[in-house]
């Protein structure tokens, strides 16, 4: 969901939009404060306390350290899961039989609730970073695989034929025609997969870890420190936003040859 009105609205409309956004933000903070006042800071930490603690723990380096662990797990998992998930469909393009053989297994892997297997990953890979990375890999791989596969399938056959007539090799076709053509789909996949991957890392930490944002959440909840819980959740949300922003910027750069279009909805 993004731009609904005309692409370049007048200044008055832009101002009104900023004002509306500020108003919605104010309403949310007001409702939150109301909840704090009604239930007490023991149950719902106040926006002010969360902001203070956020700045404090950033300054002390504690929050950054924990966020760093989570981020490292998510980034490693995204790379290890994402790169093969992009390359495999490019290779499978010329092997329809192989694709068909793999199909039910991939669908099973895609549909399987990976997060429910977090304990299994902990049994296999221990309580360190490896189990979290493995969980992120399992989440990212299938989403990106199917996104890329769809992009490769939707490819304009005429472009491929034209390149072959010029004498392009199979490798060159994949590199210069198929991959660029599939980039919007690949990024659509990553835009869904990465926030989910970050959530997966946090969940694995919730269940069993001694560091990371998930650990902070669990620790906060055990000590009845709702401020600590909120700060950790806020940090995780900011990580997701930063990752989304980074991916949008990368896609915009890779697709700078395209006429400007509406940003695709952020994901499904």
């Amino acid at each position: 969901m993004s731009k609904i009105t005309a692409p370049s609205p007048s200044r008055a409309i832009r101002w009104r939009r900023h004002l509306d956004h500020a108003l919605v933000f104010a309403i949310i903070v007001a409702l939150w404060s109301l909840a704090t006042w009604r239930f007490g800071t023991y149950w719902v930490s106040s926006p002010w306390a969360v902001a203070i603690r956020f700045v404090e723990t950033i300054a002390s380096g504690e929050l950054i350290r924990h966020a760093g662990y989570t981020l490292a797990e998510a980034a490693a998992g995204t790379l290890i899961g994402g790169v093969p998930a992009v390359l495999l469909p490019l290779f499978l393009r010329r092997h329809p039989v192989m694709t068909a053989i793999l199909d039910p297994f991939m669908i099973g892997g895609y549909g399987a609730p990976k997060l429910a297997f977090a304990p299994l990953f902990i049994v296999w890979f221990g309580i360190g970073m490896e189990s979290k990375i493995a969980l992120v890999v399992s989440v990212v791989f299938f989403i990106v695989y199917f996104a890329t596969l769809n992009g490769v399938r939707a490819l304009d056959a005429k472009l491929v034929q034209a390149a072959q007539i010029f004498g392009a090799s199979e490798h060159q076709v994949a590199r210069h025609i198929v991959l660029p053509g599939a980039i919007p789909s690949i990024f659509a996949g990553f835009r869904i997969a990465v926030p989910y991957g970050i959530a997966a890392a946090v969940i694995a930490e919730l269940i069993s870890a001694n560091r990371g944002l998930g650990y902070l959440v669990q620790n906060g909840a055990m000590n009845f420190d709702t401020t600590g819980v909120f700060v950790a959740v806020l940090m995780a949300t900011l990580l997701v936003q930063a990752a989304t922003w980074l991916m949008n910027a990368m896609e915009a750069w890779l697709l700078r040859w395209r006429p400007p279009v509406e940003m695709m909805e952020a994901g499904t």
Partner: peptide
């Protein structure tokens, strides 16, 4: 708010 890892709210 869509970016909030909703599962992380579970302990709270």
């Amino acid at each position: 708010t869509m970016g909030i890892p909703k599962y992380a709210l579970a302990p709270w």
